[in-house]
Design a protein around this nucleic acid. Sequence first.
DNA 1: TTATGGATCTTCT
DNA 2: GAAGATCCATAAA
Length: 194
Amino acid sequence: MPEILGKILVRTIGKRLLSGRIVELEAYIGNDAASHAARGLTERNKVMFEAGGVSYVYFTYGMHFCFNIVTEKTGFPAALLVRALEPIDGISVMKKSRKTEAMRNLTNGPAKLCQALQIGRDLNGVKLDGKSLFIADDGFVVDQKDIGCSTRIGIRVGTDKKWRFFLKGNEFVSGSYARILTSNSGFLIRERTD
DNA sequence: TTATGGATCTTCT
DNA sequence: GAAGATCCATAAA
């Protein structure tokens, strides 16, 4: 399903070029309970209903942006949440944006990579057509056996769906430390990605 | 090493 | 009013 895994996300700002390989994705499709589009069209999720090839950037938890790639045809809401990148170009700029020197902390989470690539509300609904934001293919081949999948992170409904995909063993995959997935359902789920 | 709380936007009950 | 596709600094163990 996710042919996007292993491709390169490219962001250009003026003459500067920032890029990273996509190493972790989550799928949110149609009438999936965990999707923002589960209860129909709203002002926030409307670009999910557009034709594939545009971006969906949403603001959450009062301070973070997350970046999605809209994938389906008009009227069918579906998007891939990009959760982690392996930095390639513009690393010094990313360090500045993220205010850290630690490589691993640059893009190993959905809100972190938005900060690193300076993705904000102004990029919501834009076409991924080679201008300021787009997907590139450098011929990197992802073997099926290198793809791991698991339940999605940070949600409390739809946890039966294993729609999180990542490159096994990649150090930039998010949540490398134990992560509490749910806090008030009576039990804790932890996971490791190593 | 693990847990907690803060930041404070958008949507739904 | 509450919860959420989050992250980080700080506190406790």
